[in-house]
Design a protein around this nucleic acid. Structure first.
Length: 937
DNA sequence: CTCTCCCGCCAAGAT
DNA sequence: ATCTTGGCGGGAGAG
């Protein structure tokens, strides 16, 4: 109420008389209207809208305000709500992570205070971004259409379009969204983030940003000494860096595999925001302390151009932009503001709080190499497609045209098919992977997230050691605490204002650093919780990218695995024992792995840094590529796709959607079917495994399965578990990892983990602790050596054991259905008895059926979803129980398909370092399956 | 004061 | 020509 409104605003307000048009599609915000018509509120909103009037017709253009009958903008409510929330809260949110609950604010009618003070903060880009992010899940189900309409968003959030562009540009730079067409963007969420970061890091290294930063820092010091405040200077220094020269300007870095965002790149010389944002992120990724001061960043960013002049103005402008970017990144929780106290004083800076892991560069490179190969082989067609879309530089003309994009996609598909051809050895080209990887990644991510969430509760991020950070910390801590579990976020329709607040909650969940944070957690909490996590490494798609720049000759020579090991399982111990038909192709030395990670953290658990993994992945990939498996995958994939398309319509409920539809649908796929039959036998074994797994899941154990895959394959994965979460104990995971890394690495053994669904209960962290021994099953008695104390992770998951045993023949096997019986889970789960919602029976016995959990997105993604209630869909919908077949298939596919590891896998793998004495533990699991695949074919 | 960074003009491109 | 994107920098709020 206070009168003090910014005058301008008041003035500006125009009535938004424009009520009239709204295009239909826009959904209106339901709610709306709040009582308070506050003029105040109106202010900004209206502005934007006005012009729009004209637009109505053809394009949906800006909507005017939602028409709804009320003139008042619905959004205004939002604002009000927000403002209503106490400022402190708001701040807190901003600073803290997201916050969870948040809910407070809303109800009050708020009418009262209204917007009154809309302090600048309320309008901050960061807050806006938050609101924006709250509307979409971090890991959206790829199946859904995750389109974002700028108009709608602008309307709903009640901001000018201009502001949305700022956000979108940054998000696009991280591949969180990609531009589809004119007013449309597609939401990818964080699924691609790991890849993107890996890529950016790589590029950053190539550009030697680290060095440049160093130089700049030094320079500045020198200057100081000198006395200067002025800047005279030497550009030379800048030039020296030279890094720039090389690249001159870098273009927008894309993830080829992922989607081509081709369109996006376009025009406007890609100067700014987008590129700037990427560079900025790169700085963090390459700088050792992970802290980058604004000044340094600005300098580097300016760099290319004329370092020389360094006008103050230019600098200033750059800084402004950096703030804009930083605000968005902050909302993403990738960075946090801090102050660096340097010699002279404290300077504003930002610290990276995002994921550290993600596939290391190496991987990337490896990938790259692979890609190269691929390229070589690639057909011209491919190239064309790629070039058109991927490379920014060239072809701008096409860029935005939607039709082209489609064309390109179709081409790629074709290509894919071609590749799949048996003969072609090569294959995997990045491009083909396109979405799939993404999807996979997403799925994986989802799982991961859930895990994270669970783990998070307790955890916090470790304090960062170095950096002199003076401020902010407190908040962070709090934020760390974010909400643990799932919440049920009230799902609101996006439109709703209130919702926004609410949304936060959900977001929080997601956000909580699924990606990055993890690293931290481990350190602290590790003891109890398993955090595990996963880093997502790669999100799967590693293989994909190709960088122009990066081609390096890395010939990775890897032995190709002749065998197709499709999946390998590992189980502990028994080193030799594993029936390996799996091929272990030589293990690579896997040397790397250095954990950059915190030394301190070490807890064994934590230890695993993803980075290490990289090697593995690469290897895995390779094999897979070569292997037949890819083919299968492709085929399946193709089918799936086809099917998917059809199916989509079918899907019953939205929830189902969340899960991967494809997955569900699968049954239909002829291929799969065929496979089934043939496979069945084999499958059964698998099934059992599964069952076990399931049961385990409850228990908390995770069985792992690995399958090699190439990115392309990934999509196949889709089949897999996307939605499917099963609880697992982390420990088991780790152990697997270890195993893998050592030897199996090469053999691609992806593992997949099962997580519990959140709903399922939050399983308490402690669970991990229990050793598998509890299991009903026995472990293989003999070999227990692995159990040796040293290993950090003790026992392998029972499931695995079972599996192996079965294979070995020790256990009865498939025939008996025992899964349920086995279900170790029951026995084990100590903790949350109650929690378990999905009891064994569900998962377990339905063989086919899997438990699906809704992926996290509480948020109603698309408007469409509202339904199920805002509730997060909880859980589990069993999938189609009805369709038995389908389910069955699904499973099969599940097994068969080479799974990508993607993030999940990575997770698993991580721990190398720790692994104890290596040799002993590693166990390989036999994978049988390839056969299956082969058969199919 | 400095740090942040909102606002929105207005141009470049797309249509 | 209109609309969409988005560079850019004035200038004001926050600290």
């Amino acid at each position: 109420m206070s009168s003090t409104l910014p005058e301008s605003e008041n003035l500006s307000h125009k009535t938004q008389t424009t009520t009239s048009n709204h295009k239909g599609n826009v959904f209106a915000e339901p709610q709306a209207l709040t009582t308070t018509p506050r003029k105040v509120s109106t202010q900004s909103t209206m502005l934007t809208e006005i012009q729009s009037n004209m637009g109505p017709l053809t394009t949906p253009t800006k909507g005017k305000e939602t028409g709804a009958g009320e003139p008042w903008t619905p959004t205004s409510n939002l604002k009000m709500l927000i403002s209503a929330a106490s400022p402190e809260i708001r701040n807190r949110e901003k600073e803290l992570c997201m916050d969870p609950e948040g809910g407070d604010a809303m109800d009050p009618e708020l009418g009262e205070e209204g917007e009154k003070q809309i302090s600048r903060k309320e309008k901050s880009l960061g807050l806006l971004c938050h609101k924006f992010l709250a509307r979409y899940p971090d890991y959206p189900n790829p199946a859904l259409n995750n389109d974002i309409s700028l108009d709608d968003v602008a309307t709903e959030l009640n901001v000018e379009r201009r502001r949305i562009y700022d956000i979108m540009n940054v998000l696009e730079s991280l591949h969180i969204v990609s531009r589809l067409a004119k007013n449309r963007y597609t939401w990818h969420g964080r699924a691609n983030l790991p890849q993107t970061l890996a890529k950016l890091r790589q590029v950053g290294e190539e550009h030697r940003y680290g060095q440049q930063m160093q130089q700049i820092r030094q320079r500045s010091l020198e200057k100081e000494f000198d006395s200067d405040s002025e800047e005279k200077e030497n550009e030379e220094a800048g030039e020296v860096e030279g890094g720039e020269q090389g690249q001159k300007e870098m273009f927008f870095v894309e993830l080829p595999g992922v989607e081509f965002k081709a369109a996006s790149v376009n025009s406007r010389k890609d100067k700014s925001l987008r590129v700037m944002s990427q560079k900025f992120v790169m700085l963090f990724l390459v700088s050792t302390p992970r802290v980058v001061s604004l000044e340094v960043a600005a300098r580097i960013l300016i760099g290319e151009d004329q370092v020389v002049d360094q006008d103050k103005s230019k600098f200033k402008t750059k800084v402004r932009r950096l703030y804009d970017i930083a605000n968005v990144l902050r909302s993403l929780k990738l960075i946090e503001k801090v102050h660096v106290t340097e010699e002279r004083g404290r300077k504003p800076a930002f610290e990276w709080t995002g994921p550290e892991d993600f596939p290391s560069v190496k991987e990337t490179t490896a990938t790259t190499a692979t890609a190269k190969r691929t390229l070589e082989s690639r057909t011209s067609v491919d190239n064309c497609a790629k070039n058109l879309f991927s490379s920014p530089g060239s072809k701008r003309s096409f860029t935005r045209h939607p039709s082209l994009i489609k064309l390109a996609k179709s081409i790629q598909e074709d290509r894919r098919k071609i590749n799949s051809a048996p003969t072609s050895p090569v294959k995997n080209d990045s491009s083909s992977s396109e979405f799939f990887p993404t999807k996979m990644a997403q799925l994986a991510a989802i799982c991961k997230i859930q895990l994270d969430q669970q783990s998070n509760e307790v955890v916090d991020r470790t304090p960062k050691p170095a950096v002199t950070v003076t401020e902010a910390l407190p908040d962070h801590e709090q934020r760390a605490a974010k909400k643990p579990v799932a919440p049920q976020p009230p799902v609101l329709t996006p439109t709703e204002p209130r919702a926004s607040t609410v949304h936060l909650t959900p977001q929080a969940q997601f956000t909580p650093q699924p990606t990055g944070a993890m690293s931290f957690h481990p350190a602290q909490c590790s003891p109890l919780i398993p955090v595990l996590l996963p880093q997502l490494q790669g999100g799967g798609p590693y293989a994909i990218y190709m960088h122009h720049s990066s081609f390096r000759p890395h010939p990775l020579t890897r032995p190709q695995p002749t065998s197709l090991a499709v999946r390998s399982m590992t189980f502990e111990d028994k080193t030799g024992r594993s029936p390996s038909d799996v091929t272990v192709h030589g293990h690579s030395p896997a040397t790397n792995n250095l954990p950059t990670s915190s030394p301190s953290a070490l807890k064994r658990v934590c230890s695993e840094r993803p980075s290490e993994e990289s090697p593995f992945k690469a290897k895995r990939i390779d094999p897979s590529t070569r292997d037949t498996s890819p083919k299968l995958c492709e085929i399946l994939q193709a089918r799936l796709k086809a099917r998917r398309g059809g199916l989509l319509s079918n899907r019953p409920s939205p929830r189902a959607l969340h899960l991967d539809p494809e997955f569900v649908n699968t049954p239909g796929s002829s291929v799969a079917a065929a496979a089934n039959q043939t496979l069945e036998q084999n499958l059964e074994t698998f099934l059992e495994e599964e069952k076990v797994a399931t049961s385990d899941s409850e228990a908390g154990l995770t069985p792992v399965r690995a399958v090699p895959l190439t990115p392309q394959h990934l999509h196949t994965e889709t089949l897999i578990p996307t939605g499917y979460l099963i609880p697992i104990s982390q420990q088991s995971l780790f152990s697997y990892k270890d195993i893998h890394n050592t030897e199996s690495s090469k053999a691609s053994t992806p593992t997949y983990n099962i997580y519990h669904t959140p709903t399922a209960g939050s399983r308490p962290p402690p669970i991990q602790e229990f050793t598998p021994t509890g299991l009903p099953f026995h472990r293989p008695p003999p070999a227990s050596p692995f159990s040796a104390p040293g290993h950090r992770f003790h026992s392998p998951s029972p499931a695995i054991l079972n599996f192996t045993l079965q294979n070995l023949g020790l256990i009865p096997g498939p025939g008996s259905v025992p899964a349920a019986a086995y279900s170790p889970g029951t026995a084990q789960t100590p903790e949350h008895p109650s929690s378990v919602p999905l009891p064994p029976h569900l998962g377990l016995h339905q063989r086919g059926s899997m438990v699906f959990v809704k992926p996290m997105s509480p948020v109603p993604v698309q408007h469409q979803m509202t339904g199920p209630g805002g509730q997060p869909l909880t859980l589990i919908s069993l999938q189609q129980v009805t369709t038995p077949k389908g389910t069955a298939l699904a499973q099969h596919s599940f097994f068969h398909t080479p799974v990508s590891l993607s993030p999940l896998a990575t997770v698993v793998t991580t721990s190398h370092g720790h692994t104890a004495p290596a040799g002993a533990k590693t166990v390989y699991i036999p994978q049988r399956k390839l056969e299956v695949t082969t058969e199919d074919t």
